[in-house]
């Protein structure tokens, strides 16, 4: 009994934090099921009647266009980052050469660089490449800024693999290329998962480059599209809440399914970064 009593403050703290983190979500979802009249009369109460009208409105709008753009840009960027970073990590982790350490540090420094320091030249570069205001403007900078973390994760992982792998492969007359893709890369799977999860969340939610490098609504990614919605029907608060809910849903669903993996991926990605 005494033990139970002692746990009361613990429960209170846990519940306060639950309200702190969870309440905004509850507000968002509940408001998204109201019509405007009901929202005006009681903005934050649980809806009396669940109306899907706002979601229907979204489905008829450009929402899925934004969604599709986001999926395309994120998937392409993450796949290319995995390939390029894994390749670059191979010589950095397993070969001796003079510039090894300096090159690794050069990538490492990339993690502290404020994106804004590169914004103007990348804006001009994108224009000169003829990519401005297309979704193809985005993978370039996304990949470039995802490389440092990814290379650090892969390099550390590769360094921990036993040296014998190469020796036996070389005995069999296996070249570097085959050695890497056939033998080392399959062993990288846990690191690939970390890199993929960490970068996907960052890129899926990225805002600044999308804001500067695209312009027309057809090329907007989800974060940009949300702002578009906000500007268009700022009076229709339940409509916006529905858009926010729908936009947040994919990551939250994936999170519910693969909670442990995602949490581990983020922890590993940031600490090593």
């Amino acid at each position: 009994m005494l033990k139970k009593l002692r746990q009361i403050p613990l429960y209170m703290l846990a519940i306060i934090l639950l309200i702190f983190t969870g309440l905004p979500f509850l507000i968002m979802v509940s408001a998204s099921f109201k019509d405007q009249m009901e929202f005006m009369s009681s903005p934050w109460a649980i809806p009396e009647e669940f109306s899907f009208a706002n979601y229907k409105l979204l489905i008829e709008s450009d929402f899925f266009r934004f969604f599709f753009n986001s999926v395309l840009v994120s998937v392409i960027s993450v796949v290319v980052v995995i390939i390029l970073a894994a390749m670059a990590s191979y010589p950095l982790a397993r070969m001796k050469f003079k510039l090894n350490r300096p090159l690794f540090l050069l990538f490492l420094v990339g993690m502290m660089i404020p994106i804004h320091t590169t914004l103007i030249p990348i804006f001009l570069l994108t224009k000169n490449l003829g990519l401005y205001d297309t979704i193809w403007a985005l993978p370039g900078p996304y990949i470039a800024f995802a490389l440092p973390v990814s290379i650090v994760i892969f390099t550390q992982f590769l360094q921990d693999l036993p040296k014998e792998l190469e020796e036996s492969a070389k005995m069999d007359g296996c070249g570097h290329f085959r050695l890497f893709w056939r033998i080392l890369f399959p062993l990288l799977t846990p690191a690939v998962a970390t890199v993929a999860i960490y970068n996907f969340i960052q890129i899926w939610n990225e805002f600044v480059f999308a804001l500067v490098l695209t312009n027309s609504e057809g090329n907007a990614t989800l974060p940009l599209g949300l702002r578009e919605f906000y500007g268009q029907f700022s009076v229709n608060v339940p409509g916006i809440m529905a858009a926010l809910t729908l936009a947040s849903l994919p990551l939250l669903l994936v999170y519910l399914v693969a909670q442990e993996k995602i949490v581990k991926g983020i922890a590993a990605g940031s600490v090593k970064g």
Binding site: F107, L125, A144
Partner: peptide, 20 residues
């Protein structure tokens, strides 16, 4: 192995900082 990553990184990060 290093060139593909290096080219993108150099173009978007290093070159950009210098140009800024």
């Amino acid at each position: 192995f290093l060139a593909p990553a290096m080219v993108i990184y150099a173009l978007y990060v290093i070159y950009s900082i210098a140009m800024t």
